[in-house]
């Protein structure tokens, strides 16, 4: 029952894990930027006057929210290349799956934020001669985004956690590198403990910050 923990072999291979962290960060940044910006476009699509645009955006959101992200990644990796004559790298498949999934989730966050702004704001903007787009950009979005910052940060944390799924298609990220180190030294217990700790060290401060921002916003509103 007494097991001797030995972290030495893990730290000897720190460079392998460092490469993994770099891969995770790269995937995270790309998916964060793509997911959040596409999410805004889709949220606006759901408010569009144009019926086909509205339906397509709704379908997109429903589809990507109601299927598991791992199924999406595997679909893009194994199925998409058959339909389209393109080479899909593990990186590409992970980006497509995670970004589109996050776009669907953040679209709902943006939509909630935009809806939460009182109609009087739109009317006032129109009364002083702004077009719909101008009102959105100058008046509505700045207020809406302030309210949804905690929800968006949560989404960001989820994206970071989701990046581990890229290991399933063998993209070189932290968990994938962890697997490699564990198979080299037969020390999965120590390796996965260290991997979990790295995620905790990176994400916990962000989570605490979200709590603080939430409290701050609740007080100022």
């Amino acid at each position: 029952m007494t097991y001797n923990w030995n972290f030495h072999d893990v730290f000897v291979n720190w460079w392998a894990l460092a490469i993994g962290v770099a891969g995770t960060l790269k995937l995270f940044v790309v998916c964060l930027v793509l997911g959040m910006s596409l999410g805004l476009v889709i949220a606006l699509g759901r408010r569009s006057q144009n019926r086909p645009v509205r339906w397509l955006s709704t379908l997109f959101v429903e589809f990507f929210r109601n299927t598991p992200v791992l199924v999406q990644i595997l679909w893009f990796y194994y199925a998409l290349p058959i339909l389209a004559p393109i080479e899909i790298s593990p990186f590409m498949a992970a980006i497509l799956g995670i970004s589109l999934n996050s776009a669907a989730y953040s679209a709902e966050i943006y939509r909630g934020g935009i809806q939460s702004i009182e109609p009087g704001q739109w009317e006032a903007a129109k009364a002083i001669g702004m077009s719909g787009l101008q009102a959105l950009r100058r008046i509505i979005l700045p207020q809406a985004i302030r309210r949804i910052i905690p929800a968006l940060t949560n989404r960001g944390v989820e994206i970071f956690k989701m990046s581990t799924l890229a290991s399933v298609v063998a993209y070189v990220e932290l968990l994938q590198q962890g697997k490699l180190v564990a198979s080299l030294n037969f020390n999965p217990l120590e390796v996965y403990t260290v991997v979990a700790a790295i995620f905790l060290i990176i994400l916990y401060p962000i989570v605490r910050l979200t709590y603080a921002v939430e409290r701050h916003l609740a007080r100022s509103d």
Binding site: F160, M162, T164, L175, Y192, T193, A196, F199, V207
Partner: peptide
Amino acid sequence: IEVFRTTPPLVQLFWFYFGLPIV
């Protein structure tokens, strides 16, 4: 609560599947 909310579920699964049996 905080550890299980802030680490990726796939890492947790690997930890329980490959790591825990050793302890």
